[in-house]
């Protein structure tokens, strides 16, 4: 039983009691209980260190900053970002590496944050949609080309599109079609997204040369 189950059952926000605050609170209780069995790391004499199953301190480099969190090894990068680092841009939708809503960059590569353990992401450069900001050419292009409707898939798309555009500055609409196979938009805003990527790719290239 992990955090996601509580998440789904948490229900609508109540007065004076936000859903996020509730999640943070319940996470703290879970962490405190799990501390009791503790880490077995001390018992081991040789070979690589064994961490967990209780919470262990880890260091993640996120958006250019070193951040320390204490999480169980089973916590995904996505849950660490959303529930521990308050970076809620990456969305938890399928949680099975299928929909792309949780896409972040890890060492520059588009990555399903739901399919990477936080503890396994140590020592890598993690960039989330928050690092791009509202003035980023890809974000601007999404707005201009009406590349979103409900917007829930958008952060994942923006990150995946940026990763692709940086590698393919002269891409065509057909290239984009194939390159975005890892993200799904159920509103069907693909037409706008394709145009946004082609335009932003050229701007990003110009920006890099400037």
């Amino acid at each position: 039983m992990d955090g996601q189950k509580h998440d789904r059952r948490a229900g609508p926000p109540r007065r004076g009691f936000t859903r996020r605050a509730f999640l943070k609170g319940s996470g703290a209780v879970a962490a405190a209980t799990a501390l009791v069995p503790g880490s077995r790391a001390e018992a081991q004499e040789t070979g690589p260190k064994i961490y967990g199953p209780g919470p262990v301190p880890i260091r993640l480099r996120v958006n250019g900053e070193d951040r320390e969190v204490k999480v169980e090894p089973r916590v995904t990068l996505l849950d660490a970002l959303r529930n521990h680092l308050n970076l809620t841009g990456a969305k938890k939708v399928c949680d099975r590496g299928t929909c792309g809503a949780c896409t972040v960059l890890v060492d520059g590569a588009p990555t399903y944050a739901c399919s990477m353990l936080a503890i396994d992401a140590q020592g890598r450069e993690i960039e989330t949609v928050e690092a791009l900001g509202p003035d980023h050419p890809m974000v601007q292009a999404f707005v201009e080309h009406d590349a979103l409707q409900c917007g829930f898939c958008t952060p994942g798309f923006v990150v995946a599109c940026t990763a692709f555009a940086l590698r393919n500055p002269n891409c065509t609409v057909e290239d984009v079609n194939r390159a975005l196979g890892g993200n799904i938009c159920r509103c069907g805003t693909y037409a706008g997204i394709r145009e946004a990527v082609v335009e932003a790719a050229r701007k990003l290239k110009g920006g890099a040369n400037a």
Partner: peptide, 19 residues
């Protein structure tokens, strides 16, 4: 996901020893 221990060995031999 159920709780588990995690290790990140540097060599194949170390990995085998952890299995």
């Amino acid at each position: 996901m159920r709780p588990f221990e995690y290790a990140s060995p540097a060599t194949v031999q170390e990995a085998i020893d952890l299995l």
